[in-house]
């Protein structure tokens, strides 16, 4: 248990936000390999192994932003849930959108959590820490 460290995919278009996540990971000593895609389309390619950076192991966890160019988070989620190989990936939405519509859409597509990006770094670090504890606790299928 815990031997196997799962890959994490961050789908995020904002460079600072990517840095923010990486920083928070570092602060919390999260060692999971983190892959970054800048939009839904790129992320789909990545998951299907069509990306040059695609790992042999498909990420078990995705941190997903909603507002992105080319393909948004909800659209991406829909594609993921349609795909038999990808449909059981744990997806955490991390977004600035406080829209009810987005929340409902996200939960209808079986997301593991919906997290609003806080303004302050501190609270984001806390959030990532909690997440880390959570997925450390969870067992994922091989």
């Amino acid at each position: 248990m815990g031997d196997k460290i799962v890959n994490i995919l961050l789908v995020e278009d904002d460079e600072v936000d990517v840095m923010n996540v990486k920083r928070a990971f570092k602060k919390n000593n999260v060692t999971n390999p983190l892959f970054v895609c800048n939009n839904g389309l790129e992320a789909l390619e990545f998951l299907r192994g069509q990306h040059p950076d695609s790992p042999s192991e498909i990420p078990k966890i995705i941190l997903l932003d909603l507002n992105m160019p080319k393909m948004g988070g909800i659209e991406f989620l829909r594609e993921v849930r349609k795909n038999d190989e990808l449909k059981n990936i744990s997806v955490f939405v991390m977004t600035t959108s406080n829209e009810d519509r987005d929340k409902v859409d996200a939960y209808n597509l079986n997301v593991a959590g919906y997290i609003l990006k806080p303004l302050s770094m501190e609270r984001f670090i806390e959030a990532v820490s909690t997440l880390n504890n959570y997925w450390k606790l969870c067992e994922f299928p091989e």
Binding site: V16, N67, T96, S97, N98, L119
Partner: peptide
């Protein structure tokens, strides 16, 4: 406004903190 204005703002905030 709430998303697109806030996200660069959060960027500024993060960068300031860093």
């Amino acid at each position: 406004a709430s998303h697109d204005l806030k996200s660069p703002l959060r960027g500024i905030n993060n960068l300031t903190e860093w």
